[in-house]
Design a protein around this nucleic acid. Structure first.
Length: 89
DNA sequence: CGTATGACGTGCA
DNA sequence: GTGCACGCCATAC
């Protein structure tokens, strides 16, 4: 309760991304918005790239334009996983 | 504390 | 429809 709410943007982003339902994709702007700063989509990318936790399906985070964006493991791997989940169909 | 960087977003030509 | 430039926030050094 106390330590909560003090979660840095980073912690929130990880939590949000981790909550992304399988087969669904969320844009950086949406994640940043839920994190508390709808203009921090930049920081979201900076944070996600700093995160290498496999528990965080950061590959489900794409650009609002519909582009997959980048990925610390490779865009190809990202697209591959999304397609496997049916997010790309 | 200040500077530099980055997995973006939007607008305009 | 495509390409370029600017702006934005947070993190790391």
């Amino acid at each position: 309760m106390k330590e909560a709410f003090r979660e840095t943007f980073k912690e929130k982003v990880f939590d949000i991304v981790r909550k992304i339902p399988k087969g669904e994709t969320m844009s950086y702007g949406e994640v940043a918005r839920r994190a508390g700063s709808p203009r921090a989509f930049r920081a979201v990318g900076t944070i996600l790239k700093s995160n290498y936790d496999p528990k965080i399906p950061c590959h489900r985070v794409i650009s609002s334009s519909g582009a997959l964006g980048q990925y610390n493991r490779g865009v190809e791997e990202k697209q591959r996983k999304l397609r496997a989940e049916g997010a790309l169909d």
